[in-house]
Structures are given as C-alpha cells and as structure tokens.
Design a protein around this nucleic acid. Structure first.
Lengths: 230, 230
DNA sequence: TCAAAAGTGTTGACGGTACACCCATGT
DNA sequence: ACATGGGTGTACCGTCAACACTTTTGA
C-alpha cells in the first residue's frame, strides 16, 4: 500500500442515541448494560468499534442491530467526540449518531455485547458510562432544534397516527404546550398529511381520525420552495 | 494500559473548510496546494492527522495555523466523513470543520505541508483532492442553513461594518436579493447591533454609518427567548 | 348519563412584503 | 452638476395567538 501512515492511531467507535416515543406519552432513550470492561455492568449507549472496511453509518446500524435488535430506522450523524481521556482504554474517537423510532413497532432484544437493553425516560436516565451523558445532551439539543424545521417527528409515531398524538409529540420534545386549534390548522394547512378513512379503536371516547405523513408530497413541496416549520 | 484494543485502526484526520468574504463582495474558500503525496501539487483543504493527545478542534486549529497562518477564528465541527476508499493511503476517517473569517483582517501565508495557500471564489473552485468537493458542498449547505438562524454572518465581516455590507453578505450566501428597507428595519429591530458615531471613509459618495455586533446583548436576548432569524 | 377526548371559527395584533424618492458626499 | 450609494415610510395582506363550546363514543 502506497504512502502508508505509520504513526500511532486513535481507536474509532460509533455510538447511537436512540430516541423512542412511548404511549404514555414520554420520550425515551435506549440504553444497554455493558457486558465487558471497561464499565462492565454499567449503562451505556449502544455502539462499538468501526470495522476497517465499513462505512460509519453502516457501522452504527450494525452495532445497533447486534446490541438491541433494532433495525431499519431513521439514523443521522450527530457529532464526533474525541477529547483525549474520554475512554480509559486509550485515545478513542467516537462518531455519534442519533436515531428515532416508534417504540410500539420495534420490540427490543438484548444481544451480543449487551447483557440487557432497555428504555429509560429521558428525564430519568441512569448514570451512563464514558461521556455518554454529554452525547445524549447533544442529541437532545439537536432533536429539539431539528424537529421544528424538518418533519422528523413522524419517525417517532406509528405510521398511522392522530393529530393529538402528533401534537403531544411536539409538546414533549419542545417542552411547552401548544394550542389545539392552532396546531391542527397549521399542520393541515401544510398539506403533507393524508387523512385516512380510519379511526382509533379501543378508546373509551370518540375515536379520532388517523393520518399518515405523505413523504412524496412533502418532497414535491420542498422542491417548490416549501418550508416545514412548527 | 488496561483493556487495550488490539485490532487494526483507521487513521484519523481533520480538514478545514474556511470561508472568507472578499470586498468585491464574493464568498471565497481557502485551499492549499499539497506538498506531499498523495495528490502532491493538487489543491485540497487544509488539514492533517490528529495527534494522539490532541482534541479534535485543537487539531483542526493547529493544522490551519501551520498550513495557512490563519489563527483565532470562528470554527465549528461540520461532519465526519469515513467512507472506505476515500483516501488512497488506506482507511482514513476525517472530521471536517468549517470556519468563517474576514478576509481583509487575516493575511494568508502558505507554510509547512503546503506549497501554496490561496483563496478561490466558491463558484469557481479548482478540482480538489480526496473527497474534498463533497466536504465543501456539505459545508456550503451548512453555512446557508445556519446563517439564517444564527448570527454567524458577522464572523465574515470586519468588526465595524455598514448595513449594506451586511445585506450583501446575506445576499451572497443565500443567493437571493433582499429589500434594502425591509432588511434594515428587520436587523435594527432585533437590537443586537450598536450604531457607532463613525462612518465609512474613502468612498466617492455619502459615507455610510458603521455598526458593530453586540455579542453581550445578543446573549442576553437569547436567554430571554429571542430568536435570531433573517 | 357521564366522562373523556374529538373537532371546529373568529378576532385582533403583528410581522412580512412591496414599493420610490430625496439626501449627502466626492469628483 | 453629476454620479453614486445612503437612508427613509406607508399600505396591504397573510400568519399567529388567544380563546370555549358542541359532538361523539364507550363505559
């Protein structure tokens, strides 16, 4: 191999901040219990070393699948953390990703490097290994910022959802109440949802209409200069 | 060292996308001519390998200083690129940063690994080494997105500037004309600029008033819920 | 029939946009 | 005096925020 670089290298890992929305409704975070040192037995973000022939995102998806069973979800690069000393094994740089998932449609199974994989309410997280607290804080900040300008909130809901579910999602993430009538008017006016001829079932009150996010229509509108904003 | 990880590791580099605003006015990009293989003699972003005991941002600032003489500027992490094959020397992951600078206040001097360091108009860039075209494209996208919601544009101007300069800055970055009266009203209404009792000099027409960005006031307003938006 | 959430309109305030002329200065 | 950019106000329209009651359904 030409021009090979012969100096010591940092190790490179990926970590995944996976947010899920529970039915209560609450914003939750997926954490695993580490099976191996360092920090064996402690809670941490799913993640691991990047393979030599693996793209970064591919790596993140693989680790997530191996450690939690979660697959095929919205995943985006978040930030790269590399402060010397953040890993007791020696210099380690981690490329963090964040993911959004609908809790009810994705059962979780601990596997491989993890003894256990569990959802925790984001406001009641256990102490996390490494600098994972900081990574989660960064991810939350990103989520709060991004959810207002891009329609990523739908990733947290089931494919068919009610307007009240959607509103609660924004209320939880943005941590402030929204006006029902104004919210509905605004979101429907965007014309990126399809109203289904289907309704909630099993609720002890009037059943709400179900909606779906129309990705195609959204992409068309984007091209025409449309700006999503809550 | 406990738990040392003994598998092969990717190399890790940093690269800097440095934007500058010229007086013409034009948005420019700093590129260097590589002194060493691979791609010796070709144009590329300033950057290099991360030291084993160096934080990532520190590393980016060091490389920038070494290769271009530029120092003490606005610099933020952009994105991490790690597709296998992006560097002919073998697996290399690069953490890209972007920087904003006022051209007139920062003279440039090629040094160290670089034979030459130069500003190119962003719409007329030479072919760049590695995947640096893609990194620049990502940085431009980020700049266009961010400049509207955060007062980072001031980093591109001299400390004292006219409202017309500020407007032109936004017109160049956002690639669309803005209405003079509306722009002025909007920016002054924000109350984050201080109007100086100083004026342009050496212009063959009425001299414009100079303004300064008031960082302190801005931070105060942010805490009080203010949102910057152009 | 009661409890619980679904669904629906109007008004007033504010901010955005469009638009044209006089002023100050240096040559 | 002329050329060049500096600097200013108003009217219209659309969007946002505030606000309360009736309807539907299951228990």
């Amino acid at each position: 191999m030409p021009f090979t670089y012969e100096y010591p290298r940092p190790a490179v890992t990926v970590d995944c901040v996976v947010f899920g929305l529970d039915t209560e409704p609450q914003l939750k975070l997926m954490v695993i219990q580490r099976a191996h040192p360092p920090f064996a037995g402690e809670w941490a973000l799913p993640g691991g070393f990047v393979g030599m022939d693996e793209d970064l995102e591919e790596s993140a998806r693989r680790e997530l699948k191996e450690e939690t069973g979660i697959d095929h979800i919205f995943l985006e690069q978040l930030y790269t953390f590399g402060k010397p000393g953040r890993d007791p094994r020696g210099r380690t740089i981690t490329v963090a990703y964040y993911a959004l998932i609908n809790l009810s449609e994705h059962p979780v199974t601990a596997a491989s490097d993890a003894q256990d994989a569990r959802w925790f309410e984001v406001n009641h997280l256990p102490k996390l290994a490494f600098d994972h607290d900081q990574i989660v804080a960064t991810a939350l900040q990103r989520l709060r910022g991004k959810v207002r300008y891009q329609p990523i909130g739908f990733e947290l809901l089931p494919r068919k959802f009610t307007l009240t579910q959607l509103q609660q999602l924004y209320e939880i993430i943005l941590e402030k109440p929204l006006d029902k009538r104004n919210f509905r008017r605004k979101i429907l006016k965007m014309d990126i949802l399809v109203a289904l001829e289907e309704y909630q079932t099993g609720v002890p009150h009037r059943a709400a209409r179900l909606y779906q996010f129309d990705e195609k229509k959204y992409q068309q509108k984007i091209k025409a200069g449309f700006n999503f904003e809550i």
